[in-house]
Computed example of a mutant assay.
Amino acid sequence: MTLAPTRPRRPRWPWIVGVVLVVIVVAVAITLTVAMHPSASPSPSKTPTATATASPSAGVAPTGCLGGSNRDNTMLLAAQKTAPHTTNGAVEFAAAVVRWTLRHPTATADEADAVAPQIIASDASPDFKDLGAAVTQNQNPSGGAVADGTDFYVSTAPGVYYVDSAAPDKVTVSIGAGYVIGGAVNPQLRTSTTYVLEWEDGGWRVQSGSLAHTTEDLFKIGTPFTGGC
């Protein structure tokens, strides 16, 4: 697993800063297996092709708010429990993981350790599973987009999703969200994260994460959530 988020930069779009965040909260090895360390340079732009995408399954379109508006373990596990065994269900769970992960104050080490066995796939790397160590080492999961010590979270209300690939038990999905600082959605700061999710033991779990798209590209190709929180 490799993950290499980029430092914030100002792209061609005036309303989006190319902030690409990592996946789950684990700042462990070199490029982040489950973490959020910025890399030395922005990730290169990618032009997705139509063949890389699978259409979301029929049913209720992803709201980006499954599990409720909180950003705690209860929300995350509720989203996992209620996310159906469909592509749209995988999208909803991925959005919940983004909301749980990208915030300050972050989850405590105990909270992260409590939820890790339930949300991380059994075939994920050992480092990826060590969420408690990650939150201890990395208290600013924004990768520098927000100043250290500043309270923030991300919202899917201005967010988008893009299904990179889909099979019955394995879905790769990219989630874009907006930063909320001081109670207001920042008009410029956005995030982009891609997850590989696997259906295991009756629920979606995170197998790995990456930065498959620049933030700008994701917001061009992504589908807006129908609700968001």
Rank of each mutant, 00 (worst) to 15 (best):
K46D: 07
M36N: 15
A27P: 01
D72H: 02
A79I: 06
K81V: 09
G67K: 07
P38T: 09
K46N: 12
L32G: 14
T63S: 15
V28Q: 13
D72A: 00
Q80R: 05
V34A: 15
S39T: 04
P42M: 05
V28E: 14
G67V: 03
C65V: 03
S41R: 15
L76F: 05
D72N: 12
T31W: 07
G67C: 07
L77E: 13
A58Y: 00
L32P: 00
S69Q: 11
T51V: 03
S57Q: 00
M36S: 11
R71S: 10
L76K: 05
A50M: 06
S45I: 07
A54I: 00
P38K: 14
K81A: 15
A29N: 12
N73S: 11
L66Q: 02
P38L: 13
G68L: 09
A61V: 10
A78L: 03
A27Y: 02
V34R: 13
T31R: 11
M36D: 06
T63A: 12
P56I: 00
L66R: 09
P42K: 08
A52K: 06
T82F: 11
G59Q: 07
N73I: 01
A35E: 10
M75A: 12
T33A: 12
L76C: 05
N70L: 11
A50V: 03
K46G: 06
T51D: 11
T33R: 12
A29E: 12
A50N: 06
A54L: 00
V28N: 14
N70H: 10
T63E: 09
A61T: 10
A40Y: 10
G68M: 07
L77G: 11
G68N: 03
A29S: 14
A61G: 05
T47E: 12
V28Y: 13
T49I: 08
T63Y: 09
S55L: 02
P42C: 08
A79D: 05
G68Q: 05
K81Q: 15
A79V: 02
P38G: 12
P42S: 07
A78E: 11
M75L: 07
T74P: 04
G68T: 01
P56C: 02
Q80Y: 01
K46S: 12
T53D: 04
K81P: 05
D72M: 04
T74K: 05
T47C: 07
M75H: 03
L66W: 02
M75G: 01
G68R: 00
A27R: 14
L77D: 04
L32K: 09
T31C: 06
P48W: 06
R71G: 03
G64M: 09
A35M: 09
A29C: 08
